[in-house]
């Protein structure tokens, strides 16, 4: 039979193993000592931007007294920014000109010479420049999500992200047209809007552009909703769009170049109207990790303004 001494040695070894396992596990399994994630989805490479490509620098921040800025536009070199239940008018120097409290949660804002249009989920509220309410357009379905407004010479274009269509209204709130961007020859599938980001804008020449985020495309329409042209980004690097819903916001610089703002990998970039990539305005590292996408606008000087919901401020970028 087994030697008693052997048994004892065996037992002692086991006791040592038990103590070592418990003590080792207890000491090792601590925050900061655990191994890093083998399954990590490393988006770091995607966020890298060649410094050569960054053609803007951030010059100023306007800290907003707002929990979450939602939409922003610039008219006559005054910034109109909505958020919480407020509409604030700020000069391009960062001085608060006016504050209008809104009885609803605003999404986005658009301004023309006589009126301010603010969208809620399912309605458009019209104010004059003193903040007096003029009208409320409520003829939308309960399933609407009015994510973009653009005006041009008495026409008001409204983008409905939920119903995936664009409406054309008169200034007085008469609906004249709606279109889904579908073309007969099936060149494109119409608007594909997987999330709440669906923007449109009209440049200084009166061209209506609509973002088609599901196709990573920017599309040019006539005021009657006929597709005139489009471009999509074909690149998997910084020159193109990634994710499912980009560009989330866009605006025009004086001269017609486009500024796009993307979600997912947060970045702001400049494109020519033809779709040719010009450069980066704000690289992903400027934004908070897993942050929210910023609405963009530009002033007559060509400065780019981004309403950053995470930093609760308007960030100003100027061309280097």
């Amino acid at each position: 039979m087994m030697n008693k001494k052997g048994i004892y040695i065996f037992l002692i070894i086991l006791a040592v193993i038990i103590v070592a396992v418990i003590a080792g596990d207890f000491a090792r399994n601590r925050p900061g000592k655990r191994p890093s994630n083998p399954f990590e989805y490393n988006m770091g490479d995607l966020k890298k931007v060649d410094p050569e490509q960054i053609i803007y620098r951030e010059t100023r921040n306007f800290k907003l007294k707002m929990e979450e800025p939602a939409g922003m536009t610039i008219f006559n070199d005054q910034i109109y920014v909505t958020g919480d239940q407020l509409l604030q008018v700020i000069t391009t120097e960062g001085r608060l000109v006016r504050e209008i409290s809104l009885p609803f949660k605003p999404l986005t804002v658009e301004v023309n010479t006589s009126r301010i249009f603010v969208s809620a989920r399912e309605s458009i509220h019209v104010y004059d420049h003193d903040g007096n309410p003029l009208a409320e357009w409520t003829g939308f379905t309960g399933n609407s999500y009015l994510s973009g407004i653009a005006t041009y010479e008495g026409n008001v274009f409204i983008a409905d992200a939920a119903r995936r269509r664009v409406y054309r209204f008169t200034e007085d709130g008469e609906k004249e047209l709606e279109f889904e961007g579908k073309v007969s020859d099936d060149a494109l599938h119409g608007f594909i809007v997987p999330s709440g980001c669906f923007d449109l804008a009209i440049n200084e020449f009166g061209d209506l552009w609509v973002a088609n985020p599901g196709k990573h495309a920017l599309e040019n329409y006539t005021f009657n909703g006929i597709l005139r042209g489009y471009w999509t980004s074909q690149f998997s690097d910084v020159k193109g769009f990634t994710g499912c819903c980009n560009p989330a916001f866009f605006t025009f610089l004086p001269g017609g170049n486009m500024i796009t703002s993307e979600k997912g990998i947060l970045r702001i970039k400049e494109y020519k109207p033809s779709g040719e990539f010009v450069g980066v305005v704000a690289e992903p590292s400027r934004f908070m990790e897993d942050g929210k996408v910023s609405d963009v606008a530009s002033d007559s000087q060509g400065r780019v303004y981004a309403a950053d919901p995470d930093k609760k401020s308007i960030r100003v970028f100027e061309k280097i």
């Binding site: 100023r60 800290k63 604030q88 700020i90 608060l96 504050e99 401020s313 308007i314």
Partner: peptide, 14 residues
């Protein structure tokens, strides 16, 4: 904070 960026508080005077 980034030293190159001027930070302006909006509306603190109202």
């Amino acid at each position: 904070a980034d030293p190159g960026i001027e930070v302006i508080e909006v509306g603190s005077e109202t």
